[in-house]
Design a protein around this nucleic acid. Structure first.
Lengths: 215, 215
DNA sequence: ATGTACTATTTTGTATGCAGAATTCATAGT
DNA sequence: ACTATGAATTCTGCATACAAAATAGTACAT
C-alpha cells in the first residue's frame, strides 16, 4: 500500500485548479494568501509555491508588492491560447505513431459518438473532452510536447466555465471529434490534423461571444 | 530615477540562467539550497521560488524529498524541444503583421550577413542569434505565444554551451537566416516559414552529435 | 569481505516571524 | 461636499526556525 507522498505545493495547485473549474474564482480576483492558506489548512509557504507555478502557467498574475490575482480574461488572449494549442496538438498528431492512431481510431470514434447522448454536468463534459484529446495524442512520443500542451491548457481553464449550460457547442464538438476519428480510420493523417485545427478554431468561435471584454 | 524593484525570485532566476549559460552547472547536478542561497546572499525562500519557476520551464527537475537538480540532457529531449520551438516560431511568423515583416526584413538580412564576419564569444553568438529571432517575431501580436517561446527556449539553454567552439554551425545558421530574410523581402511568407523550420531542424542536427547520451 | 541494523548528520519541506510596501480609514482644510 | 494629508491597518516579500525525510556513517553479525 503505497501511501501518497506528494509535495503540498502540488496538492494545493490541484485543489486550486479544481476550484477554478468549479467557478469559485472570478477572473481578476486577487488572492489573500493568509486567508486562503488558513482555508486550505496549510501555511503560506507551500501555498505561495503553488501560486508561483500557476503564475508560470498563466493562470495567475503577480505584481510586485501586490501579490497574486487570477489573470483577467479577454477575447484576445483566448484567441491566442486557442491558436497555440491548435498548433501544438497538430504537431503532436503529426509526430504520433501511425500504428497507435490506426489502433485507437475506432475507440475515438465510439467515444465521440457517445458524447452527444448523455447530458451531463458541465465539468464532466469538460473532463470528457480533455480525455478524448489525451487519448488522441497518447501515441505521441514527444513527452515535452505533451507536458507543454497540458500546461497551456491549464491556462485555458479560466475560460471553460464561462460556457456552462450551452448544449449546442458540445454537439458541434462531438461532430468534429467524429470527423477527426473518421479521418484517422481512413488513414488520412493530413485531414485529421486539419480537422483537429478546425476543432480548436471552431471551439474558439463558439466561446468568443461569452467572454466579457474588460480591457 | 525609477530604482529597480523586482522580486528577488526573478533576479535569482536570471542569475541562475546566466550561470547556466556560462556552463557553471553540469546537467544532472543536484542543487544544495542552503549553499546556493548563501553564495547568492539570499535566504532559501526566494531561492526556492526561483527554483520552482525553473522547474516549470523544464530547466530543473524536482523529486520529493530529494530537492532540485538540473535536468539531464538527452538527444531525444533536444529533438523534442527543437520540434516544439520550430512549430511555435512558425506559428508566430504566420500570425505576424506582414507590414512589420516587410519593413524589418532588410535589417534582418543585414544582421544575418554581419553574423559570419565577426568571430565572437560563444555567449555573444548565442545572444546575437536570440536577438535575431526576437526581431523576426517582433511583429507577432500573440503575446502569450511570444512568452511561451521564451519559456521553452529557456529549457533549451541547457544545451547551448555544449556547442561551444564550433565555427561551422554558426556560418550555416547565418546562411539560413539570410535565406529567411530574403524570402521575407520577396514577400514569400510561406517560404520564410519553411526556411525558419529548416533553421531549427538543421540547428538540431548540428548539435545532435555533441549531446552525450545518458539514459 | 559483505550485508544489515541502527545512529548521526545533512538536507529538504513546511511553519512561523518580521520589516516594509500598499491600502484603508479618518481627519483637516478648502 | 470634495480633496488632501497622515496615521492605522493589512498584506506581501523575505528571513528564520523547526520537523521529517533522506543520506552517510558505524558497529556488528554472517
Amino acid at each position: 500500500m503505497p501511501i501518497e507522498r506528494r509535495p503540498l505545493r502540488e496538492q494545493i495547485r490541484d485543489e486550486l485548479m479544481l476550484r477554478l473549474d468549479r467557478g469559485d474564482f472570478a477572473a481578476g480576483t486577487d488572492i489573500n494568501e493568509a486567508a486562503l492558506a488558513a482555508e486550505l489548512g496549510v501555511s503560506r509557504t507551500p501555498l505561495r509555491e503553488a501560486l508561483i507555478t500557476l503564475a508560470g502557467e498563466g493562470v495567475l498574475e503577480s505584481n510586485q508588492g501586490r501579490g497574486f490575482r487570477f489573470a483577467p480574461v479577454s477575447r484576445k488572449e483566448f484567441r491566442e491560447l486557442c491558436a497555440i494549442v491548435a498548433a501544438l496538438e497538430a504537431l503532436a498528431l503529426d509526430s504520433s505513431d501511425p500504428a497507435y492512431l490506426g489502433r485507437t481510431a475506432p475507440e475515438l470514434l465510439r467515444l465521440a459518438q457517445g458524447f452527444s447522448d448523455d447530458v451531463a454536468e458541465q465539468q464532466d463534459i469538460e473532463r470528457h473532452d480533455d480525455e478524448w484529446h489525451d487519448l488522441l495524442l497518447g501515441g505521441c512520443g514527444n513527452e515535452r510536447l505533451l507536458d507543454l500542451i497540458t500546461s497551456v491548457k491549464a491556462g485555458m481553464r479560466r475560460y471553460s466555465h464561462l460556457v456552462a449550460g450551452e448544449s449546442t457547442p458540445m454537439e458541434r464538438a462531438a461532430e468534429e471529434h467524429c470527423r477527426i476519428a473518421e479521418c484517422l480510420i481512413a488513414g488520412d493523417l493530413e485531414g485529421a490534423a486539419t480537422a483537429l485545427r478546425d476543432n480548436w478554431v471552431n471551439g474558439m468561435e463558439r466561446m468568443m461571444s461569452r467572454i466579457p471584454e474588460t480591457p
